[in-house]
Design a protein around this nucleic acid. Structure first.
Lengths: 275, 275
DNA sequence: CAAAATACGTAACATACGATACAGCGCTCC
DNA sequence: GGAGCGCTGTATCGTATGTTACGTATTTTG
């Protein structure tokens, strides 16, 4: 039994030619709004021609476009009247392999933020928004992308942001550039990497303020860190999840940006003009 | 400020003639479904003539009937896509600057997964778990870290996983290695990068299957993609959020790992012994 | 109560929308 | 390498749709 058009589409999308698949994907992406518009608008949004749209709805089993739209509308009406049943993909009697993953991830985030005080975050934001010192970011094997992500954003809104990458010897030598005014953002979840711990220890000796993103069991680097963000990482998977840390990182990026804008950063305008 | 058409109607319903009032009441009764149908159907449902319906929407301030319908659709889209706005009592105690960010992110994830079918994910997992072809990953300015993150995991559980990085000319030349059996995972959210689009186009011409991670507005690469994952990116911040895509990526990594383990990957054991 | 004004529906109209025929192209399979 | 099939877009067509003009009905007002 196929209850919704969305299901129907995902059932058959595999057996569709390229053009119709684009139509399907476009519809799913902003379901179901585009399906309520005219064929012309639909086709334009999907980047195909109108006949392809019509063939698409025909393949779904509808006699004509208006019939397709009516069904869509009825579906919508049913949803609106019982907000409870608003799920496109019904809770799906445990068959789904990803749903528990999502649930666990959402829980992780809520838990992570519950243990983070506004004060703590505000302190970190203040430090990161300080333009006087340099900002270094580094991560472990799986978390280095998070460091990169954060660096990519921070580098735009303030000067002297450096992501430390490549061989250990390379970034170890960068310690020479680090001093009291500077910040070192480290991502390290288990299994904690010795090289990172040693790096953090040395940096700490040089007076660098360390902001540590780690898991709830705390990397040994926590000993040297000025600020510690402990994220939940447990999910029903073979791997730990860095998603909670990722979200904290995004929240910090957003807050720092706001802070620097408030301070009157003409920097961003300058950047705009450079493009 | 009148935010919804429903409010607008209840504001003015007092100053309407009998026929138009019936139209208004009919619309409110099954809001907004009937307004999406044709003038003829609307008039029949309200028991008035079509011109009365048109006069009714004209009185609401719309130039013509299609404009009225578009507005209704936009309103509907806003409702459907941000479940947050449906909650009457926002989590409040709004002192926290990060809380709205978290809420929006959680919503984004729920929405993103709501638009993803198990079938769709299963297809992608099957393709990624296929050890025969090569797997290439690449991302845009801010999303490249996601590609790295995924590559870091996939490279452990299967051979021939390559993250494309560095200068454009470097990874463009890698196209020579790509063929029909291969997969290209692309992360691209707005502003979409031309270089990536061209890259995807060429790869597609070579028969590479493209898995696209993009935002809800769909990168132009969707045209060439075999599979499209549309994540929600809107958050109360100066930046778009990639968190939802990150979580999808993690879910896929987990699923692919499980799949390959089921196939009996002695690879992981081998790796263990190498350490 | 009469006269005017407003409201409403019928019917004709024009437009834009969905539908269809056809040709070009690429792909697959001999 | 050639023949066949399937997919896609262009151009055209018929029609359903929104729109307007006008006459009748109903209400309002002096």
């Amino acid at each position: 039994m196929v209850s919704s058009i969305a299901e129907l589409i995902s059932d058959r999308i595999g057996a569709m030619p390229a053009g119709e698949r684009r139509a399907a994907q476009t519809l799913i992406a902003s379901y179901p709004l585009i399906g309520l518009k005219t064929v012309a608008e639909f086709s334009a949004a999907a980047g195909v021609s109108s006949p392809t749209i019509l063939r698409f709805v025909a393949r779904l089993g509808f006699q004509n476009y208006p019939e397709f739209q009516s069904t869509l509308q009825d579906e919508l009406a049913a949803q609106l009247q019982s907000p409870a049943s608003r799920t496109l993909n019904p809770p799906s009697q445990g068959a789904s392999a990803v749903s528990p993953m999502l649930e666990a991830t959402l829980d992780n985030m809520r838990e992570t933020f519950r243990h983070l005080s506004d004060k703590q975050l505000a302190d970190i934001v203040a430090k990161l928004a300080d333009r006087r010192g340099k900002t270094f970011l580094i991560g472990g094997r799986f978390t280095d992308p998070l460091a990169r992500y954060m660096a990519a954003h921070l580098a735009i809104i303030k000067p002297n942001v450096f992501h430390l990458a490549g061989q250990e010897s390379v970034w170890r030598d960068r310690l020479i550039d680090m001093g009291k005014r500077d910040v070192l953002v480290i991502f390290d979840i288990r299994r904690y990497q010795d090289s990172l711990v040693r790096f953090a220890e040395t940096a700490n000796q040089r007076g660098v303020q360390i902001v540590l993103f780690t898991d709830q069991w705390l990397s040994p680097i926590a000993r040297f860190a000025r600020h510690v963000i402990a994220g939940r990482t447990a999910v029903p998977s073979a791997w730990d999840s860095s998603a909670a840390l990722f979200v904290v990182a995004e929240a910090l990026i957003g807050a720092v940006t706001r802070q620097l804008e408030a301070d009157g950063a003409k920097r961003i305008r300058e950047l705009e003009s450079l493009r």
